[in-house]
């Protein structure tokens, strides 16, 4: 992220003319978007492929990328989509529940010292519970459909949202709150027109952390009890010693996580561009 900011080009003496074609090769590579990360990625894949072939690494230890690609083919596209949809649905619903629950809690915590004194320790306790350990209990209590999985996802992803939203709601300049009071505006509008928009940058940092946690939550829930979903698929494949398939599932999860994260990123960029740091636009 800081790679671009670290380019010392800005500080170069202005007397020296520096058209791009005259720059040294390394500098030109650094300045080209996507190129360097893509090259690194391809290089690692190649090393991985030839390394596993050269040293005859068994596929249950580390399958070659080509074997993982074959692993995709073992399952039909339709079945893949079922797995993907199941995990995606639980992750997104859990995420939405987290947002819906965190927002009123954050408003309460930021507006009332009484609430923040009484509720916050409880939230920390919930956050500190190892969710993986509680997951089987939740499944027994709530059954085996989506509901327990959504609850587990929620438990893993809500805390960063509460913290970032509360911090954001408290970060409003006190003068604007005084302005609001001097206009004798209702508290509701103080929250919707001043505090919440001011909290946007904070809320988005929480949203970015929580979206990847939501995917983790959905997978954890599927590990415990499910008959569909990427988490289930990975566990099932491992138990059958079909490791290339499990790696294929992992790759799908990775893409899903990255895509969801990027979706949150783009939402902020297009709908709330003012909330980004100035040089990040």
């Amino acid at each position: 992220m800081t790679a671009q900011a670290d380019i010392p080009a800005e500080k170069a003496p202005p007397a020296k003319p520096a058209p791009t074609e005259r720059l040294p090769l390394a500098e030109r590579l650094i300045r080209t978007p996507v190129l360097l990360p893509a090259l690194t990625f391809i290089l690692i894949l190649l090393l991985w492929e030839f390394g596993t072939r050269l040293f005859n690494v068994p596929s249950y230890v580390l399958p070659a990328p080509s074997r993982i690609v074959e692993g995709f083919g073992v399952v039909s596209f339709g079945r893949w989509m079922e797995h993907v949809w199941s995990t995606l649905r639980v992750a997104l619903l859990g995420y939405l529940v987290s947002i819906a629950v965190s927002l009123p809690i954050a408003v309460g915590l930021s507006k009332s010292r009484f609430l923040s004194r009484s509720l916050y320790p409880l939230l920390v306790v919930i956050q500190s519970v190892p969710v993986v350990a509680v997951a089987p209990i939740i499944i027994v209590v709530l059954g085996t459909d989506d509901a327990p999985r959504i609850v587990i996802t929620f438990m893993i992803s809500f805390f960063p949202l509460v913290v970032s939203m509360t911090t954001g709601l408290m970060a409003t300049p006190p003068e604007l709150i005084e302005l609001s009071r001097s206009l004798r505006a209702p508290v509701r509008r103080e929250i919707t027109q001043i505090r919440l928009p001011y909290a946007t940058p904070y809320i988005f940092s929480g949203l970015k952390i929580s979206i990847t946690l939501s995917v983790i939550g959905a997978v954890v829930a599927e590990f415990v009890a499910a008959e569909v979903g990427i988490g289930y698929f990975i566990q099932f494949s491992t138990s059958m010693f079909r490791l290339p398939q499990a790696w294929a599932g992992l790759a799908v999860l990775l893409v899903m996580s990255l895509a969801l994260f990027q979706a949150v990123n783009l939402t902020q960029k297009y709908f709330f561009p003012w909330s980004l740091p100035k040089d990040g636009r």
């Binding site: 003068e175 604007l176 003012w274």
Partner: peptide, 12 residues
């Protein structure tokens, strides 16, 4: 009407 030390405008 009040004018504060910082303009404290709504950045959005």
């Amino acid at each position: 009407g009040i004018v504060f030390q910082q303009a404290t405008l709504l950045p959005w």
